[in-house]
Design a protein around this nucleic acid. Structure first.
Length: 479
RNA sequence: CGGGGUGUAGCGCAGUUCGGUAGCGCGCUUGGUUCGGGACCAAGAAGUCGCAAGUUCAAAUCUUGUCACUCCGACCA
């Protein structure tokens, strides 16, 4: 053991200062570097590779459900952006504007897309004439710009990567189904791939997307018990279609406005992965999306046959479709152990002279730090088995955190007390008035996260005003 | 946008109170010894002290301004 533990010791303890821990991890694990422009970060290969895995899986899910990828321009003329009133009002404060082209002042300001509803609408107007043209189920992978005042790596960038789905349908029913389907896909993805348990529900009027009729969300609980909105799906009704004058001739030979949806998930989810699973040793990545699932570490690699055996092991893993890597650098084994724990690699395989003699290697789980001897003869199966166990265990741990920190409140005082002393999600009844949401925000710093699909009748009265309650709402401090 | 903190070598920091021409640890380079939990020895390389103006014989240090990062609040994915 060295006199000091270097990088890992330099990571602030989670309990000491969670925000500091987060930024430490993000930098030490080589996920990002800061750029010269506030809020615009450099996604380093490790983070980008993680994003590529997320993209690949989600993209597959979108394609399976009949969506097509497109690409829209990154610029929107001001007049176009302003067509839908609620939409502009929602985004206006954080839009970045282009006013010059070279040395010439533009006749009309051009906005850098904060989201692409207006572009899609303008395009749909051109290509949709008949019910036969519907539905259009489009998605695009791109970056968007929102001129945020306070920025944090992954959680709030000024430019961030995401996907935005935009669909248009002939009927209300079909559009509503699409909205629900996409929320289910996000929930499935978060839970089964990212090992992040979610609360599914609908946003209140106050919290819904600018221009939407209904907004649905999956809310996740971070390790510090704060909420993170991790994916959203919106039902627009025909509001945008009317504002943009999109019409089609239906089967009954009458002109109608179609119905639209949009839905998105962004690189913010990476912040969610970090804050859901990470610990004092650093990152902890779910095997399903980890850029490297298994790191092979040769021990006493200068000795005869060690590197060869390690390479053979690596090859076996790769051939069976496992994302594996090896570190044959001159760093000491101990350094490598700590390094890849910090980077959150789910499983480490140590192989040294002793193991080779016995036809074994030593597996060390990132999630439990448990050490297990594995036979080389059957290594790919035992590794796959372990990766599955790790994935499952990470989900269970996160679920436990969510369940153990979800409480019920019947009065504002109770709610306030829970948030102050314990934190977490608080389930409480709500009358439906925005004034109560505002009051709870002022008094307890919480916002309504969602009206969960899984409703319970906790009482007959609003937690805030005592009037008859309409819904059970999950309240929490949010990112 | 308000309040706090920080900018000195790639990273983490000392030096600023009391101006005198920059130092420590890690990392990096080279050579050697090590190798099952962040190894050791030796020799090196590396800094317009965030930027700009001012005061001064002299500024990392004093003054003013400015920018960036970061944390906490109001707005958002």
């Amino acid at each position: 053991m060295a006199q000091e533990k270097k990088d890992v010791e330099q990571i602030t303890k989670r309990e000491e200062d969670f925000a500091k821990w987060y930024t430490d991890v993000v930098k030490k694990a080589e996920l990002i570097d800061y750029s010269q422009v506030k809020g615009c970060v450099i996604l380093r290969p490790y983070a980008y590779s993680l994003w590529e895995n997320i993209q690949r899986i989600l993209d597959g899910m979108f394609k399976e459900t009949g969506h097509e990828n497109v690409y829209m321009p990154m610029f929107i003329p001001e007049s176009l952006l302003q067509k839908e009133k609620d939409h502009v009002e929602g985004f206006a404060p954080e839009v970045a504007w282009v006013t010059m082209g070279g040395s010439e002042e533009l006749t009309e300001r051009i906005c850098v897309r904060p989201t692409s509803e207006t572009l899609f609408c303008d395009h749909y107007k051109n290509i949709i004439k008949s019910w036969r043209d519907l539905p259009k189920k489009y998605n695009q992978w791109c970056s968007v710009v929102r001129w945020e005042k306070a920025t944090r790596p992954f959680l709030r960038h000024r430019e961030f990567l995401w996907q935005e789905g935009h669909t248009i349908h002939a009927t209300v029913d079909e559009a509503r189904q699409e909205t629900q389907q996409m929320l289910r896909i996000y929930a499935d993805f978060a839970e089964n791939y990212l090992a992040m348990p979610v609360v599914r529900g609908q946003k209140t009027e106050k919290e819904k997307f600018a221009g939407a009729e209904e907004t649905y969300t999956i809310e996740c609980m971070m390790h510090d018990k704060k909420a993170l909105q991790s994916g959203t799906s919106h039902y627009f009704g025909d509001g945008f279609a009317k504002a943009f004058d999109i019409k089609f001739t239906d089967k009954d030979n009458t002109l109608k406005n179609p119905y639209q949806t949009s839905w998105g998930m962004s690189t913010r989810i990476i912040g969610g992965i970090i804050m859901t699973h990470g610990d004092d040793s650093g990152l902890k990545l779910p095997p399903m999306v980890a850029p490297v699932q298994v790191m092979v570490i040769p021990v006493a690699q200068h000795k005869e046959g060690v590197i060869d055996a390690a390479d053979a092991l690596l090859e076996t893993l790769r051939l069976s479709g496992i994302r594996a890597n090896i570190d044959v650098s001159e760093q000491s084994p101990g350094w490598k152990f700590a390094e890849y724990e910090m980077k959150g690699i789910p499983l480490r395989l140590e192989i040294g002279p002793r193991d080779i003699q016995n036809g074994q290697c030593l597996a060390v789980r990132r999630d439990t730090k448990e050490k297990i001897s594995l036979n080389l003869a059957d290594i790919e199966n035992s590794v796959k088995d372990l990766l599955e166990k790790i994935q499952k265990n990470m989900f269970e741990e996160a679920k436990e955190n969510l369940e153990n920190n979800t409480f019920t409140a019947y009065t504002t005082e109770e709610l306030k007390d829970i948030i102050q002393t314990k934190g977490g999600f608080v389930k409480a009844m709500w009358c439906g008035d925005e004034s109560c949401e505002i009051k709870l925000k002022e008094e307890a710093q919480v916002s309504s996260r969602c009206i969960p699909f899984a409703q319970e009748t906790l009482s007959e009265h609003c937690v805030c005003c005592g009037k008859p309650a309409k819904h059970m709402v999950v309240w929490a401090v949010a990112y």
